[in-house]
Design a binder for these strands. Structure first.
Length: 261
DNA sequence: TTCCATGTTCCGCA
DNA sequence: TTGCGGAACATGGA
């Protein structure tokens, strides 16, 4: 589920397990996922590099390779990272494998291949070129700026939250979580929200994103969240009522009609 | 077999 | 100009 909280968890994983490790061997297992670089070029850029830092903006992860190069990862709908302390760890749909000198291994897996693997010089430039909006995690975006951005959109509030050029990192699942926590209907017009609505929304966003990261963004370990109820017969984690499914701006939206009337 | 899926991008149409 | 619906991408589970 690679939205902001998931990618933040991957960032913490790489920071906790790969920092200062030197890559002995890099293997691209599916070159069709590479963006703007060839297999040989990427593998040789990775080989011998030491992981020096990790950054995240929205749904993008940037792994510093020392010097001025960064490995850039996007996870599409099905991508994830897994770290293996021992040699030989495998996952089902490996697309990139980094073997460190101490035989530990980091695998990028992406079943549906809708993600992206790239090599960039500078995250700031990349973010600008992609046209990504500010990242709303952990106080990176203040309330008044958030209100200004959201109010500037003409469409639904759900579409606004998911617009990566407005705010980077919120996708379909977390937009639903945030709207339930704020008690706002996904089809409400962004530009028509009151200051009180915007404040509730901002605070709900902060709580949901931080809460999800604290729980490892694991749907099986997120009591009080809507994520496990995205199904027929799902019940609202706040009031116990039935969850409703709608299509909003082309995506499936789950909501509680009672809490989000 | 058909429908659906956490993302992004492009096209046509309001 | 903005936004929406639909399709495409690639793959697999229900």
């Amino acid at each position: 589920m690679p939205e902001l909280p998931d990618v933040e968890v991957y960032k913490l994983l790489v920071e906790g397990s790969c920092l200062n490790r030197r890559i002995a061997r890099a293997e691209v297992l599916d070159a069709s996922m590479l963006a703007g670089i060839g297999r040989d070029e990427l593998e040789s850029a990775l080989r011998g590099a030491t992981i020096s830092s990790v950054r995240r903006h929205g749904k993008h992860l940037f792994i510093g390779l020392g010097g001025s190069a960064w490995l850039e990862l996007h996870f599409g709908m099905t991508g994830y990272l897994e770290f293996f302390p021992e040699a030989g760890g495998r996952t089902k749909h490996e697309r990139l494998r980094l073997d460190f000198e101490d035989t530990s291994r980091l695998v990028y897996d992406c079943q549906r291949k809708l993600g992206e693997i790239g090599l960039i010089d500078d995250p700031e430039t990349f973010i600008r070129q992609k046209g990504l909006g500010p990242d709303p995690y952990a106080g990176n975006l203040d309330r008044s700026r958030f209100a200004e951005l959201v109010s500037s959109k003409r469409g639904s509030i759900k579409a606004a939250l998911m617009d990566q050029s407005l705010l980077a990192g919120i996708g379909n699942v977390y937009s639903d979580e945030i709207l339930l926590a704020a008690g706002l209907h996904p089809k409400a017009k962004a530009a028509e929200l009151s200051q009180e609505d915007l404040t509730r929304l901002y605070e709900a966003m902060g709580r949901i994103l931080s809460g999800a990261v604290e729980r490892g963004a694991d749907p099986g370990n997120m009591p009080g969240f809507l994520v496990a109820q995205r199904r027929p017969e799902g019940t609202c984690p706040r009031c116990g009522g039935s969850v409703q499914k709608l299509t909003v701006s082309g995506r499936s939206a789950y909501l509680c009609p009672r809490c989000q009337g």
